[in-house]
């Protein structure tokens, strides 16, 4: 039985969702490896997603209707599954970005005093 992991993963999942959505919004449709590579690159190698984390997250976002996945071909002419934001995904991204900014603002104010 699974899916009963502690809440730490929940938080991670939340941020991971946000990161995936933002990546796809910036770069357009990508396959899984490209998403992971992009996140690794952006974080200067600090964020190394393994498959067991990334792919279930993609599947979950797809199940929630935020992403749409479809098979296509890479530049190297390889068959790969590409993920793109749906309209709902874009709305959700906007909402989560806002929430994140607000939360970040609160934490910022808390840690360093009001700006």
């Amino acid at each position: 039985m699974s899916n009963r992991e502690p809440s730490k993963t929940d938080v991670l999942q939340g941020t991971l969702d946000l990161m995936v959505l933002q990546t796809l919004d910036t770069l357009g449709a990508l396959h899984g490896y490209a998403i992971a590579a992009r996140l690794e690159q952006v974080s200067n190698g600090a964020l190394q997603l393994n498959m067991g984390t990334l792919y279930p997250a993609l599947m979950r976002l797809e199940q929630r209707g935020l992403l749409r996945g479809a098979w296509g071909t890479t530049e190297a002419n390889r068959k790969a599954r590409f993920y793109a934001l749906t309209a709902a995904g874009r709305r959700q991204l906007a909402k989560e970005k806002q929430a994140w900014d607000r939360m970040a603002g609160i934490i910022q104010a808390l840690l360093h005093g009001p700006a």
Partner: peptide
Amino acid sequence: SQMHAMDALRDQR
């Protein structure tokens, strides 16, 4: 990690 991910995917599916 492929095997592991497969399990996780099955669970998520």
